[in-house]
Every structure is written in structure tokens, then in C-alpha cells.
Design a protein around this nucleic acid. Structure first.
Lengths: 100, 100
DNA sequence: TAGATACTTGCATGCTTGTGCAAGTATCCA
DNA sequence: TGGATACTTGCACAAGCATGCAAGTATCTA
């Protein structure tokens, strides 16, 4: 079983553990193309500056990626990375470890 | 795909997204028998009252279960539940949704 | 019964975090 | 060039959260 870096994992989970940020992630789940910040504003109850800040946190944690296009920033979900982190923890939780 | 209740999931992730709480969870991962609070104190850098409060949060979120035995409380990880929640989100994140 | 052990809880404190507003930067287009 | 659009950032503020200490409750044991 892979070792888990608790600090890193905790900050990823913390990033996902805020309602508006999780809403942003779920919104991006449902899109097969990158979305800009204005579009993403519609799914959560904060103003544009709040969304900007939430997206910054998600970017820093590797949850989303940004691509600049003119005056827009297009965000896409790092599906494989986030899913892998979650599954890694799920695996660790479900299987009793060897004391090794 | 199962619908996800964002509020509930966010509070579960928030509960897991604190370093000391995640340490407690990882500690419980490695135990095949319930552990009491004193024993769990060793794995995180807070005093007994802090551990007590963290375990309370984890209990309220369904992450762990308590069983009282005399003056001790024995905690065990709700492995199936937590793993399922994490995998459910991972599935949702990895598969592009139908607009349906 | 008295003291020890296991855990919880009230209180105070300091740090972090989410938020809106207003101002700022960058880019587009007429 | 000048205004509109897209996004970010500084500031202020309120609320939330983690923490230790000290006191409290519950249970055990000598």
C-alpha cells in the first residue's frame, strides 16, 4: 500500500471541504470543456471575487488547471489526480494495514 | 450515477481535512480492534481535550463509531461508509456527466 | 470511601478563513 | 483611444475553528 502524506492530503481534503468550492468542482464534473470563471459563478453563492479566490485555492491544490485565453481563464478539473487521491485514501481506509 | 449531497459531503471532507483528525483516522486504519482515546492521543500533537473534541467531530460525521466500556471509549473506523463516500465522489469526478 | 484513571466541557485566546466592496490590471472591440 | 468585459487583489470584518488549561463527571480499584 502506498504511504500517504498526511499534510498534503489534509490540505487537499480541506480545499474540497468547503461548500462553494465543492460546488465548483461538481459543476466542472459535468462539463467536458474548460469553463471560465464567470460561467462558474452561477453555481455558487458568492460574488466574482469570492469565486476567483476559491478557484485559486483549488488551483494551488492541484484540483483544477487554468488556461489563459485572452481576458478569460478557463478552468478544467484534474479528474485523474483528484480521483486517484480519493481512491488511494479509500483503499487505505478499507484495508487493515500490516504492522510491518 | 448517484446524486451527491454537496452540503453533507463537504462537511465530511472538512472533518477529514484537518491534520490531527486525519492522523487519528490513519491511526485507526492500522488497527483491527477499537482504540481508546488515550491510546489515540499518541498519534497527534494535541492534548487529551483536543483529541476528545476531534473524535467528537469525527463521530458526528459518521467517520468513527464509539463504544463505551467502563470509563473508556473505544473508537473504530467506519471503513465501509467513509470509503464509499470517497469512491462515490471519485466516480463522479472521473466520469463526465450526462446533461440529462 | 478515597484516590486514581479516562474522558468531557466551559472559558479564553489567537489564528484562519470566507466574504463583499472598491479599486486595480489585462484584454477586447468599436 | 475609450469604454466594456474578465478577472484579481487590498482592505475590513465577522464568524469559525483549534487549542490549552482548569474544572467537572464517570468509573474503577485499593
Amino acid at each position: 500500500m502506498k504511504p500517504i502524506n498526511i499534510d498534503n492530503l489534509a490540505s487537499l481534503l480541506k480545499a474540497l471541504g468547503e461548500v462553494n468550492r465543492l460546488s465548483l468542482v461538481c459543476q466542472l464534473c459535468d462539463c467536458d470543456t474548460p469553463q471560465n470563471a464567470t460561467c462558474l459563478c452561477s453555481c455558487c453563492s458568492v460574488d466574482a471575487s469570492g469565486v476567483s479566490r476559491h478557484l485559486k485555492v483549488l488551483t494551488q491544490e492541484g484540483v483544477v488547471s487554468v488556461e489563459k485565453d485572452g481576458r478569460e481563464r478557463n478552468y478544467s478539473l484534474n479528474r485523474a489526480y483528484v480521483a486517484q487521491q480519493l481512491r488511494n485514501l479509500a483503499d487505505r481506509i478499507e484495508s487493515i494495514q500490516e504492522a510491518s
